[in-house]
Nucleic acid binder design. Sequence first.
DNA 1: AAAGACACCTGGGAGC
DNA 2: TGCTCCCAGGTGTCTT
Length: 270
Amino acid sequence: MPELPEVETTARGLKPLVVNQNITSIGIYRPKLRWEIPKHLPVTLKNQVIQGVGRRAKYLLVNFERGTLVLHLGMSGSIRVVATELPLKKHEHFEMTLDNNTSLRFDDPRRFGAVLWQNKGETLPLFESLGPEPLTYDFNASYLFQRSRGKTQNIKTFIMNSNIVVGVGNIYAPESLFLAKISPKTLAGKISLKRYQVLAQSIKSILSEAIEKGGTTLKDFSGVDGKPGYFSQELLVYGRVDAPCVRCNGTIKRIIQNQRATYYCPKCQR
DNA sequence: AAAGACACCTGGGAGC
DNA sequence: TGCTCCCAGGTGTCTT
């Protein structure tokens, strides 16, 4: 479900609702998500104050004095803050109850998501090999150009690799390639610096625009307040198989790359 | 070292 | 109504 803009939307929505709140209790209702939820959380977090909410890649970070709670939404996860007395939904597996009688609840039907803990001063292994954030200066054309030399992988798979750049998933990768007029089949190692200039810029603008619109809601994504994101209305190729290309009136095609669907216009993306 | 396949899950929609 | 099949926004790990 969530790529970078959806996680960012969640983080921003969460902030005013939870920062400076004190944890009264933790509920673990389904311990096994992608990994086991740490058993010590109810003890570790009791009476701890939430100092801030952030994001790294598609991981949501909830900061405490003694460490960071790391949440990943997987394919189907979402987070909402509700009145504590509201009954649990079927797939709400994890809950933090705050002292203002609200609860942050983690909902994830497919359970590909994760709830992890990182002690102050340590770095979880999963953060170690991550590439740069796409919306920073470190992510640019020469970086992409340099990392891609010698790669025989297609460009779509390349930009979805979190070791190269984080946060670009199966929706925004095709959208960015469309904007940049690059075919998803092009080999990453064969793309010129000049074209990477356009691609880096496209990724940045697609992601920032999606954040502004509150993310993309396809099925069930919603922000912390339950409201959907509105970027779905702006998608130019994703999900538009057989529809006319908005740029050249060609026909949008759907292919499979790396076991995932890719949408593109064969006429104006080369 | 790098690319590709597979695995982990549930639910919604299409087609019969 | 109900069954079967296909599809889905991610990513670590195993296999070539």
